[in-house]
Amino acid sequence: MSQLHVSASPHIHSGNSTSGIMRDVLIALLPTTLAGVIIFGWRALLVLLVSVGSAVGFEALWQWLLKKDQTITDLSAAVTGLLLGLNLPANIPLWQVVIGNLFAIIVVKCLFGGLGCNLVNPAITGRVFMLVSFGSLVKNAFPVGVDATTSATPLGTLAAGGTVSYADLFLGNVGGAIGETCKLALLIGFVYLLVRRVITWHLPVVFIASSFVLTFLFNGFDLNAAALMTLSGGLFIGAIFMATDYVTSPATAWGKVVFAVGAALITVMVRLWGNYPEGVSYGILLMNILTPYIETWTRHKRFGEVKKA
């Protein structure tokens, strides 16, 4: 007689896995990666490779030094590395990319206990860290063939009273970070994540829509300017890929809505009245910190719950 395995129910599993989810996120980022390389050239690819490589490398090193189970196969470090890379300009010095990932993986993620325990999104925080440490990051990156000395990022152009074409904004033919400019590619990734049920529509849609509405309200009721600003900068990549990080955003649908409105409010205020070109990053980062509270406020109603006297 063979050994019978005894355990508590359930005895079957859906097959969902963390690595499967992370793989889907990587797949969803493929169009954006491709667009970034096409728009910004091979230097962009180099930045992304260094970023992913150093993120995975730092996590592997950390787990090895602490004699813990290797966790890089869950692909979460690769996602962090790719996202951080996509948030950097193509011409950034590579050593800065490595330092940024060191901060994102070791300080933000591993020191807090690894995957699932970090309070804030590692890629976002890595980007903010780099901005604070290395000065203005984004404004020096321009598409291949565009004259960098006379151009600015669309947000910079808009702030200076200039104008940008919708087509350029949508297709990404403007200055900015590698992954943030091509909205078409980001939307393709968004649809993929929705189809694969990795994320729900709530957070990205509400984040982007409220940013639009708030910009319209705070910026002189100018529809055109609001639309241009919404399509500019890191709003789409932030709303679709960074704000939706499971670990640092609320799990409930209403929680996601609250998170998104809050992040949009901070984004718009920083964009209109702040000194940094970092509205989306700060919006997400600050809402990350509020996430545990939002989750408590917006928890599901329990079935048959009776109010306690």
């Binding site: 969902n16 966790t71 869950d74 499971y246 609320p250 799990a251 409930t252 599901h300 329990r302 079935f303």
Partner: peptide
């Protein structure tokens, strides 16, 4: 593996736990 706080548990609980 580690909980990634995806919310699949609470979003699929018939009783909202």
């Amino acid at each position: 593996t580690a909980c990634i706080r995806c919310g699949a548990c609470t979003n699929h609980c018939p009783f909202g736990l």
